[in-house]
Design a protein around this nucleic acid. Structure first.
Lengths: 215, 215
DNA sequence: ACCTGAACACCGTTCAAGT
DNA sequence: ACCTGAACACCGTTCAAGT
């Protein structure tokens, strides 16, 4: 079982979600295709378990970062850890924290985030909503980033920079009267850093939460 | 072309993403499998175009709701419209506003959201980040919601209520010492409404933005 | 209890051939 | 210019058979 998940994660890390195939996995494990079904009942479950396998480390890292005086700072640290994990492994995005019953570490992470809100002066419902918002935000930005770029970029025929700059050129070519905002931010877009972008949005969310908690 | 997209959307609406197959689509159109490739170069492009086809209506609805005195209120109205669209069509979540160059309406929606921030006292970079944050949040919550429930629920063998209550029972059965937060919010989770949840988190984000803009 | 691998029922995509 | 449908190279999943 352990080996199945380790090899599955390796396959995902090396070549992305499309590379994880029962046949490819069986080949790496030196066995037959069918044997994987002894450990896992479907590909969906395999992906859930692979994701949760990786979340064990993420959870450990997140736990290390909590315990400061300020629960909102802790919330920030946890969210950043999650972001880093998905930035490292884009395939995680899709199977991240699905509370399916086979994701114990995902559940523990949910709990850890929630516990920070227990330290804030909020109603139960506000706490529930705050946690949903933080997780939703992380997943959303991650999904946006993890969007697999077109084939040519994946194959290395076109570099990420060229891809981005082609994008930027396309934006610049748009009608300035119809797209004032696009033109307004295109320079910032050109040099933007995903982590900064994530961090800035997270700050808005947490500022709203701090206001609500009166902290 | 129009017919291809209309039927593709119909297929997606009726039975979800897995039902959209080149063979199924060709059958509905009364033609051969290969002919679809005349209009679209891959399945990914088909899904992009189907999503954008639907975004035309979303854009129109969103445009109707803007123009109030308060740009943040307008931002809120647009985000709510997006949320409703994805709630109606869970398959949209995954192909929502991918700025791929074949999604003109997605681009226009991005512009529309951005234009609201032009009315706020922010730096260019803050505007760029604010728009990313709002879209990221919408996509994230939508992805969470659009997560297809297990087979038994989809087949109607188990109702959504039973599924949710089984979930709740599982949460209640967890160790109260190890999962204080989960126990804290399980009652709220049991009766929660997705739209409320979305709305509450959006308010946090927008409160943070309002603070930043000093508005 | 755990594994094998052929077989089944699908996919997306290509392409020579048609109109 | 637009369409056809057989063919190809894959998939996930099942299952009788093995150890």
């Amino acid at each position: 079982m352990e080996a199945v998940l380790t090899e599955a994660v390796a396959l995902l890390d090396e070549a992305g979600e499309s590379a994880l195939t029962f046949r490819a996995l069986a080949a790496r494990l030196g066995g037959g295709v069918g044997s994987i079904y002894w450990y896992v009942s479907s590909k969906d479950e395999l992906l859930d378990r692979a994701a949760d396998h990786v979340l064990a480390d993420v959870l450990r890292a997140a736990e290390m970062l909590t315990g400061s005086d300020d629960p909102i700072d802790d919330l920030r640290a946890i969210a950043m850890t999650l972001f880093d994990a998905i930035a490292d492994r884009p395939w995680l995005g899709a199977y991240f924290m699905r509370n399916t019953g086979v994701q114990p570490h995902g559940m523990k992470l949910y709990e850890l985030i929630g516990e920070q809100t227990l330290r804030l002066d909020l109603t139960r419902r506000e706490r529930f909503h705050a946690v949903s918002a933080v997780i939703g935000y992380v997943v959303g930005i991650a999904a946006d980033m993890g969007q697999q770029p077109p084939q040519e970029v994946r194959d290395g025929e076109v570099s990420r920079e060229d891809y981005l700059s082609r994008f930027v050129a396309q934006w610049r070519a748009m009608d300035a009267d119809q797209y004032p905002f696009v033109h307004h931010i295109v320079d910032d877009f050109e040099v933007h850093d995903d982590a900064d972008q994530f961090s800035a949005g997270l700050d808005l969310l947490l500022a709203g939460l701090r206001l609500q908690a009166g902290a």
